[in-house]
Design a protein around this nucleic acid. Structure first.
Length: 832
RNA sequence: GCGAAGGUGGCGGAACUGGCAGACGCGCCAGACUUAGGAUCUGGUCCCGCAAGGGGUGGGGGUUCGAAUCCCCCCUUUCGCACCA
């Protein structure tokens, strides 16, 4: 064993050996308990960043622990390999997206291997291969068969930078999620959609199974789905044959309705213009307000603005006539695009009506009858001035009035969702071709399953301009109709890459399957994912699509469960100087560089030590130095005593030590070792505050260093010293696996540490026998007394009162009360 | 505006069920070894104070023998949603 720690040499050696031993290959084995550790797969952008390293190190520590606990651990990795950057690189450098992507994968796979993760590389997938994306197409066809994939002309979010459509989830503050400065514009296009709305209720309902998901993620999903129960109510419009339908959750306030507001691009507006006495003014108003509401998407808190249409609508409950106004804050896409204005009980209506001097009529009063001005009273209360409903509570009134509206044919109870169907069409090249054909005679025809995959043509001129690049490839576009044999045109849109990542973790269980997306047996054995780890940024996009896909797969009969992930963990970000690492800020720390300087173990250890995993971690160059020093200390500790310790062959250490057979110094050292093991074990199971586990390992290393004198003097026997060293190596192994294996071998073991069963700590050895109890006077610690663990309350009381420092504080004061909490403390309460 | 999570030394953080605030690491100070040290080792390091002692977990109040931890009010940071009727 070298005197100096050389991580480059050690890590290369162990990575080679692990590979030779196929240590991380996991095969389905019904006789063994399985554990599925999954981390979010990276986009092959060119290089791994520290966020990946943190994510994957977290998973790796868990995977290693689970292996040692005896589980059959599946821990796969792959590449989310379709996407826009590949095309942009192609345009910029003339390198085909495929080449760019695969050369990035090469680099990044190398980086992952350098870090020594426990991946079963036989299961690696890349979503851009036909072998993978044919199953995207297959799943799409299954959805099409069930009416879950459909085409419609719709107003879409279009990013002028990407030159493609964005899903609602990809619009952030009215701008593209990739180009945060670029406002999204609206276009009318024929698009493919997946009917996620049909699953909205199940996505909500099944959250009750996700007890081990962060509440934060569930809340975000709940808000995103945005279920709200209410009523649709019809307001006939005078001088127009079409009534206005409004959606409201507060039909109990309808007697306070003093206007009806419609979105400026509501379909009825054209009809009103046609029938208006001053059509030009009305059109100008509509255009102006439309412009202002479009701006509202990008801006925050735009002022309320509107215009009177001159038309009147009749309240079906009160039969009053109220004016119809255009309003910039009414959202076309939600509900019916029209609302009843109840300024007394809705803050937005209140603001609008105040601005335009529209009447405000109170119809709900709170219990206390006190109304705050000048705000709307938006809570539930009691109805007044509401005809026969006066006197009812809001909740009763909503039910009764909804029923009455239904009976009279002027409305109905309904449920609205904020979530919309998932638009998956992208006018881009580097994605999964949507397997549909447009036959000149038969119309829309799906590609037959046996013709899958529809393969992306390799040579395509990419310009980044205009329409889908696939349209420019005649060999791709021209096809024959599978029904009539006549000429057909291929769909040239490709799928949103979130389709790829919605089911990739199933494919890992059976990555080579050429006849199905996966074998049901494999999934039955490996699923659910026991632990999924990734960034919080995917809380609503990926993590909701993935749940949706599983439910569809359940309905198709591919799987027999409704939720794929039992436990989710969202880790914090890796920052540098308080902000996210980015090329533009020039604050990127490169994992490979760090591995070259310190080795993978140091990088991993530091990542785990610097902060608890759910919190953001600010990278510190000084901090990683500390991790490096610790590993050096651990190495030297073993190197120094290796010759002595190795002589003691494994298993030759005689009977297991018991507290009785040990002297005081031996007990103290072993106690520390077992306390550390206890802490790490318990933390691995529940809490994952790896930073505290590593701190405990450091304490044990410090204790060992302090014991060296006693060891050299023969006061600590070799068996005990060795046992403590071994427990340190084992406890450290999930975090610094290469070093752990090197030290384990140096101690005379031939098995890699991953094959060593995780030891159970000995509660007897871990238990303290004597405690130093704090003695408080009026809640302030003033002294300490040493007591045996089993000391009685009375003994402790006497010891405390006899303490010199305590007596000094007691001087002349009256003892009111003495609280003795065995094993914890003594608190003496003094009077004045 | 609404919702969620935070605020502890010079810094990252620890304190798991109300029971010694500051584990562990970084940094800093002193010393040892050294031609040298950005290596290593030893000791010190919450604040005020020579000390005795006193103060201390964003601020204020409360419950309790005892509060970083529980309750109320306020300030503040980060994240998510943002006219969703």
């Amino acid at each position: 064993m070298d005197a100096n720690y050389d991580p480059q040499q050690i890590e290369a050696k162990w990575q080679r050996r692990w590979a030779e031993l196929k240590l991380f290959d996991a095969d389905a084995d019904p006789a063994r308990r399985k554990y599925y550790v999954l981390e979010m797969l990276p986009y092959p952008s060119g290089a791994l960043h520290m966020g990946h390293v943190r994510n994957y190190t977290l998973g790796d520590a868990l995977a290693r622990y689970m292996w040692m606990k005896g589980f059959n651990v599946i821990h796969p990795m792959g590449w989310d390999a379709f996407g826009l950057p590949a095309e942009n690189a192609a345009i910029k450098h003339g390198q085909p997206p495929r080449d760019w992507t695969f050369s990035n994968i090469e680099v990044m796979r190398g980086q992952l291997k350098r870090l020594g993760f426990t991946y079963d590389w036989r299961r690696e997938i890349a979503t851009c291969t036909p072998e993978y994306y044919r199953w995207n197409q297959w799943l799409f066809l299954k959805m099409y068969e069930r009416g879950l994939a459909y085409r419609k002309k719709s107003r879409v979010n279009w990013c002028p930078q990407c030159e493609t459509v964005l899903a609602n989830e990809q619009v952030v503050n009215g701008c593209c999620w990739r180009h945060e400065e670029t406002p999204v514009i609206e276009k009318e296009l024929e698009q493919w959609f997946l009917k996620i709305t049909e699953y909205a209720d199940r996505l909500l309902e099944d959250m009750k199974h996700l007890v081990r998901w962060p509440e934060r993620v569930l809340t975000m999903q709940r808000n995103w789905i945005g279920k709200s129960a209410g009523a649709l109510v019809q307001f006939p419009v005078e001088g127009c044959d079409e009534p206005l339908r409004v959606f409201t959750t507060r039909v109990d306030t309808i007697f306070g309705c003093t206007a009806v507001f419609v979105a400026p691009d509501h379909p009825i507006v054209e009809k009103l213009i046609a029938r208006s006495k001053s059509p030009h003014t009305l059109r100008a108003d509509a255009d102006r307000i439309k412009a202002s509401s479009a701006r509202a998407r990008a801006e925050v808190n735009l002022e309320k603005a509107g215009a009177n249409t001159g038309f009147m609508a009749r309240n079906p409950f009160s039969h009053e006539l109220v004016p119809v106004w255009l309003a910039n804050f009414v959202v076309t896409e939600y509900g019916t695009g029209a609302v009843m204005a109840v300024p007394a009980h809705d803050q937005r209506d209140f603001e609008f009506c105040t601005t335009y001097a529209l009447p405000i009529k109170t119809v709900i009063v709170p219990e206390s009858k006190k109304l705050k001005e000048p705000e709307a009273f938006v809570e539930y209360g009691w109805l007044v001035d509401s005809g026969k409903y006066s006197g009812l509570g809001s909740e009763d009134a909503i039910q009764k009035m909804t029923r009455d509206a239904e009976a009279q044919g002027v409305g109905q109870g309904t449920i609205q969702y904020r979530i919309k169907d998932w638009g998956i069409s992208r006018q881009r090249y580097w994605g999964t071709p949507i397997p549909m054909l447009y036959c000149d005679r038969c119309g829309l025809v799906p590609v037959p399953e046996e013709d899958l995959p529809v393969v992306l043509p390799p040579a395509v001129k990419l310009t980044g301009q205009g329409r889908s690049p696939l349209e420019t490839v005649p060999e791709f576009v021209d096809a024959s109709c599978p029904r009539c044999g006549g000429h057909a045109r291929r769909e040239t849109d490709t799928m949103d890459t979130f389709v790829d990542s919605s089911w990739y973790f199933y494919r890992y269980t059976d990555p080579q399957n050429a006849t199905a997306p996966f074998s049901q047996d494999a999934v039955r054995y490996w699923f659910p994912v026991d632990q999924y780890i990734g960034g919080i940024e995917h809380a609503i996009l990926h993590l909701i699509y993935m749940r949706f896909f599983t439910k569809v797969m359940q309905d198709i009969g591919l799987v027999d469960f409704s939720e794929p992930v039992a436990r989710l963990f969202t880790q914090g970000m890796v920052l540098k100087d308080g902000s996210a690492m980015s090329k533009s800020k020039g604050n990127v720390v490169d994992p490979t560089e760090m591995c070259e300087k310190y080795g993978a173990d140091t990088v991993r250890l530091y990542m785990m030590f610097a902060a608890p995993p759910e919190k953001d971690l600010d990278w510190s160059d000084a901090g990683i130095e500390g991790a490096w020093r610790f590993l050096n200390r651990a190495y030297r500790l073993v190197a120094k005593h290796q010759v002595t310790l190795e002589v003691l062959k494994v298993g030759s250490s005689g009977p297991a030590p018991t507290p009785q057979s040990l002297n005081g110094e031996e007990r103290q050292l072993l106690r520390k070792a077992h306390q550390v093991l206890r802490h790490v074990t318990e933390d691995m199971e529940f809490r994952w505050h790896y930073n505290t586990d590593i701190a405990m390992c450091m304490e044990l290393a410090n204790a060992l260093a302090e014991s060296e004198g006693a060891f050299a003097a023969g006061k600590i026997c070799e068996q005990v010293f060795r046992a403590a060293v071994e427990l340190l190596v084992i406890s450290l192994s999930p975090f610094a696996p290469h070093l752990a294996d090197e030290l384990w071998e140096a101690l005379g073991h031939s098995e890699p540490i991953l094959r060593v069963p995780w030891p159970a700590y000995d509660p007897g050895l871990a238990a303290e026998e004597e405690l130093e109890l704090p003695v408080q006077i009026n809640g302030k610690t003033r002294a300490h007394v040493r007591v045996a663990v089993g000391a009685s309350e009375e003994e402790i009381r006497q010891l405390a009162l006899a303490d010199e420092k305590v007596m000094r504080h007691l001087n002349g004061k009256k003892v009111v009360k003495i609280i003795v909490v065995p094993q914890k403390l003594v608190n003496i309460v003094l009077g004045d």
